[in-house]
Amino acid sequence: MSEDVQVSVADGIMTVTINRPAARNAVNRAVAVGIAEAMKELDANDAIHAAIITGAGGTFCSGMDLKAFVSGELPIVPGRGFAGIAEAPPAKPLIAAVEGFALAGGFEIAITCDLIVAANTAQFGIPEVKRGLAAGAGGLVRLPRQIPRRVAMELAITGEFISAQRAYELGLINRVVPAGTTLEAATALARTIAANGPIAVKASKQVVQQSQDWSLTETFARQQPFLDTVFKSSDAIEGAKAFAEKRAPVWKGK
């Protein structure tokens, strides 16, 4: 894996760090490939229960590396899209830990994640239009599903930024924490997730994501196959036993 992406795993939690601080962690081809490889490992490794993506040097990600783009390099992985993640996020929970700027493709990486923890000094935006480009890595399609449509429209066509507090008020991010503590806060959140039944967590994520496109009349029927997987698992029995016996459950992921 490229030095542009650093990956570590501890206590069932993967941390993926975009490591190009001199370029404000702009995404080039190497970063895209590195993130894609990390996401593949996340979903394939049963010992990993959740992941965090962050940026080195006090900035989350400034978006696509425009210098690389001008030279003809595209930070896209076939089948996974921009940054190796925009079109195919992992099945397991992913948390963005945002310090500084999450702009353009960086913002799109963040909103691809399931949860966002942001520093109180963080800023978000999709300023692609200011460079004659468009937020095609999810900004134009994911953002209107996560915040009010008119606010998403304003961000898309003005290219202006919003603060972490404004993003929190809009329901776009989960936690606002002091600058410099986002990774610590995201890790605490990941540990809470990792303590839960992995089959139940995965199924819950799938239903929450996919049900956005379900009609009300089909909702319960469409979610049933996911629930069958959960309730027929040995983990479901283990969870009930552990509760009755007043002990921590020992999950097997089966």
Rank of each mutant, 00 (worst) to 15 (best):
P93Q: 07
I95P: 12
E128P: 02
C113W: 10
A119T: 07
L94I: 02
G105S: 05
F124S: 01
A122E: 05
A122Q: 05
A96I: 07
D114I: 04
K130T: 13
F107I: 00
F124N: 04
A119K: 11
A110T: 07
A104G: 07
P127N: 15
L103G: 15
T121G: 15
A119Y: 03
P93R: 14
A104P: 10
A104M: 13
Q123M: 09
G105V: 01
D114K: 13
A102N: 09
V117T: 12
I95C: 13
A110M: 12
L115D: 14
L94A: 03
A104W: 10
V117L: 05
F107T: 02
G106K: 09
G106T: 01
E99P: 11
G125N: 15
A97M: 03
T121F: 07
A119W: 06
G100I: 00
T112M: 02
T112L: 03
Q123F: 07
F107V: 02
I116M: 06
A119M: 15
A122I: 06
A118L: 06
A118M: 08
A102V: 04
L115G: 02
G105K: 08
A97E: 13
G105C: 02
A97L: 09
G100V: 00
I116F: 00
C113F: 05
A122G: 08
A119G: 15
F124L: 12
A96T: 09
F101V: 00
I95E: 14
I126R: 13
I95H: 09
L115I: 05
I111L: 00
E128Y: 06
A110P: 10
I111K: 03
I126Y: 12
F124P: 05
P127L: 12
V117G: 02
L115W: 07
F124D: 11
A122K: 00
F101R: 00
L103N: 12
P93F: 10
A102Y: 08
I126D: 14
A97Y: 06
I109C: 05
I111C: 05
T112E: 15
T112C: 05
C113T: 14
A97V: 02
T112G: 14
C113E: 07
T121Q: 15
G105A: 03
P93H: 04
F107M: 13
A104D: 08
G100S: 12
P127G: 10
A119P: 12
K130Q: 15
P93D: 10
V98K: 05
A96C: 09
L103W: 11
L115Q: 10
I109S: 04
C113H: 13
P127R: 15
I116L: 04
V129A: 08
L94R: 15
T121W: 04
A96R: 12
F101L: 01
G106Q: 12
I126Q: 07
D114S: 03
L103H: 08
E99H: 10
I116A: 03
G106S: 11
A118D: 02
A110G: 06
A104Y: 07
F124I: 04
A102C: 10
E99L: 03
A104F: 02
G105P: 08
N120R: 11
F101K: 00
E108S: 14
G125R: 06
G125Y: 01
V98Y: 08
A110H: 07
A122H: 01
Q123E: 12
